[in-house]
Amino acid sequence: MERIGVIGGGLMGSGIAEVVARAGLDTIVIEVSDEAAKVAEERIHGSLERALTRGKIDEAELAAVTGRITVATDLEALADRDLVVEAASEREDVKLELFRRVGAILEKDEAILASNTSSIPIVKLGAVAGRADRVMGVHFFNPAPVMQLVELIPSLTTSPETLGRMQAFVSEKLGKQPIEATDRAGFVVNSLLVPYLLSAIRMYEAGYASAADIDKGMVLGCGHPMGPLALSDLIGLDTIRAIGVSMYEEFKEPLYSPPPLLDRMVDAGLLGKKSGHGFYAY
């Protein structure tokens, strides 16, 4: 797999595109508008500039990686791709429509269509794509250029060959560490992480302590690198809510249900770091 497409140039999509391009692969990022495409280009270049400043890459590699990335707005540009990773909004209706359209666009029978979803059933995406055996979840973590883990999620209809190709691609080509998870909402990491984050939000909502003290307690008391409310801001409060809703719909466990404060913050546009304000101001 040498020609890669990424749908979505947000925090996750741009990070995935950078990882793929740094692995030496031809990369196309699809965004919804020219304005969004420009923002995606700036986001990718900014990340590469930070890598340069930290000595992770040199000027020559920065130029080479930038040259491998094209940002476009037409899904038809994905037609010749060997692998397309969808990293669009965590909304089931949006993802289903994208998989329906891209499944019809891909020219190569062996091309794989993957989703970076955190919680939406992979089997549903495969059912609308017209290539159910070549659809699976490939869940990166933020920031993708730094985080080593990638969850691989085959559905009931994903072929063993597709899973094997993705295991080799992630470990050998991208240099990441894959783990395999079943096609259940939340997979491995979010099934453990999201209830913890929602519990911290409920604690803050109930007035147990300030956001800063809750986070300080978990950093200094449990050795976590980041507190749960700061981490929620980093992930995006809309994403946290969407994952919680999806997990609650599947399992009906109260601990997965988003608390009212989270609903209100998302409705108010207080989404965390990406909007400039969440539990903290940025």
Score class of each variant (00 low, 15 high):
residue 105 I to W: 03
residue 281 A to H: 13
residue 141 F to T: 11
residue 5 G to T: 13
residue 123 V to R: 13
residue 119 S to H: 05
residue 121 P to M: 06
residue 86 E to W: 01
residue 5 G to H: 11
residue 72 A to C: 02
residue 148 Q to F: 00
residue 213 D to H: 00
residue 227 G to P: 00
residue 1 M to K: 08
residue 208 Y to H: 12
residue 266 V to M: 11
residue 3 R to F: 10
residue 229 L to P: 01
residue 202 R to N: 04
residue 43 R to A: 15
residue 67 G to F: 13
residue 57 I to H: 10
residue 65 V to D: 14
residue 178 P to R: 03
residue 196 Y to S: 06
residue 41 E to N: 09
residue 147 M to A: 14
residue 12 M to F: 08
residue 272 G to R: 07
residue 113 L to V: 02
residue 256 Y to P: 00
residue 196 Y to M: 08
residue 163 L to N: 02
residue 280 Y to S: 07
residue 199 S to F: 04
residue 102 V to S: 00
residue 14 S to K: 02
residue 99 F to V: 04
residue 94 V to L: 07
residue 156 L to R: 14
residue 17 A to H: 04
residue 150 V to H: 11
residue 43 R to M: 11
residue 202 R to K: 12
residue 35 E to A: 15
residue 173 K to R: 15
residue 258 P to M: 09
residue 115 S to Y: 05
residue 240 I to R: 02
residue 162 T to D: 10
residue 119 S to A: 15
residue 120 I to R: 01
residue 121 P to N: 10
residue 261 L to Y: 05
residue 197 L to M: 10
residue 58 D to W: 13
residue 272 G to M: 10
residue 15 G to T: 04
residue 191 S to D: 02
residue 225 P to K: 06
residue 61 E to L: 15
residue 40 A to V: 03
residue 3 R to C: 01
residue 189 V to R: 05
residue 60 A to P: 00
residue 146 V to P: 12
residue 172 E to K: 12
